[in-house]
Design a protein around this nucleic acid. Sequence first.
DNA 1: CGCCGAGTTGAACTGAATCAAGAAACGTGG
DNA 2: CCACGTTTCTTGATTCAGTTCAACTCGGCG
Lengths: 193, 193
Amino acid sequence: MDSLINYVQKNASTLISDADIEVIKSCFISKRLRKKQYFLQEGEVCKYFAFIVKGAMRQYYVDEKGIEHFVQLAIENWWVGDRESWVTLSPSKFTIDAWEDSELLLISNADLLKLIQLVPAVMEVMRKMDERNNIATLKRITSTISYTSERRYTDFSTEYPDIVKRFPQHVIASYIGITKDTLSRIRKKASRK
Amino acid sequence: MDSLINYVQKNASTLISDADIEVIKSCFISKRLRKKQYFLQEGEVCKYFAFIVKGAMRQYYVDEKGIEHFVQLAIENWWVGDRESWVTLSPSKFTIDAWEDSELLLISNADLLKLIQLVPAVMEVMRKMDERNNIATLKRITSTISYTSERRYTDFSTEYPDIVKRFPQHVIASYIGITKDTLSRIRKKASRK
DNA sequence: CGCCGAGTTGAACTGAATCAAGAAACGTGG
DNA sequence: CCACGTTTCTTGATTCAGTTCAACTCGGCG
């Protein structure tokens, strides 16, 4: 729990009282996942959004040919979940699983809405989370529609070196929208320098 | 102004009082733009986020070769602006201009933060806006990393027919990450049915 | 009328995908 | 701790989707 409280405090502009800390804690559910375990399977409703205390999670879409497209990769102090399914309680098109043994803190949309009312600082923190998310995804889109795959990879690995270290190459490749074969060749080319 | 108030009321779960409406109105600045006029030029700070009362706006990134990559297209009842620049007051990498004569309602980040404090319903509305934005951009990413350009175009034009109608083809092409030539061929192929 | 931005089209080219095969790394159970 | 199977990564040959470039058309609009 501490890392969540830390995260909230770091992103809030005011000091969080001990009473508020207790309220926040009471809204989350702890969950542990082993590597390869599912957090969400395609077709299920994403009842909980998760704050990652420890571990690494992958969110992906499986197309008609059965190919997995990784749309989000998340590690400690990030959030993971299918926002659309979580908000609308509709079945998800995505699958989310643990890539490392992970510790999560779960919260339902209803509980988060309540929590936001009770502790205004949480509202601020969530707004900032959304804000960062919006900014980051727009950058990702700019990158995919503007640059070559080589440029996308070098940009990504300098911006998120920790992510690149913790997931296998074929996952990174999929995330930036290329095949593992192409990424292997890009890396080979880049290392000859 | 009415369309903004409408937008707020539609997205709020409680009734907005007349007093609140006055407060909201007082925080926004009206602005008219003629077709082709800039709202934001690369290198400037995006001081204001804009609610589009009427018109159509384009946000794009110009790469080293001088090619424009359209990252956002917006019409009535949407928001436009460079979120990162607006929040951090750093120079923007994007250009935003009017594609039709437009009427905008502008607000600075500082004023929005104030307004959120004064009128809690606005907080709720902004959160929903962010939420939708996050969901939509993740869909866009899923689409660009998973599908062929043909599929991306048909999906986009069924989901946003109004956008497709109001912007020229080469802009739409850039938005979905292909060249105007390719889009022209895709459309030709699709019409032979 | 003349010009300019938008769209179309063909031909040549190219970056990346696909397919297949082999090497390396990894982890799990005996 | 070794052996075996699985997953990951590499590499070459081929194919293909999409780009590039240039020429031409069309439809406004000043």
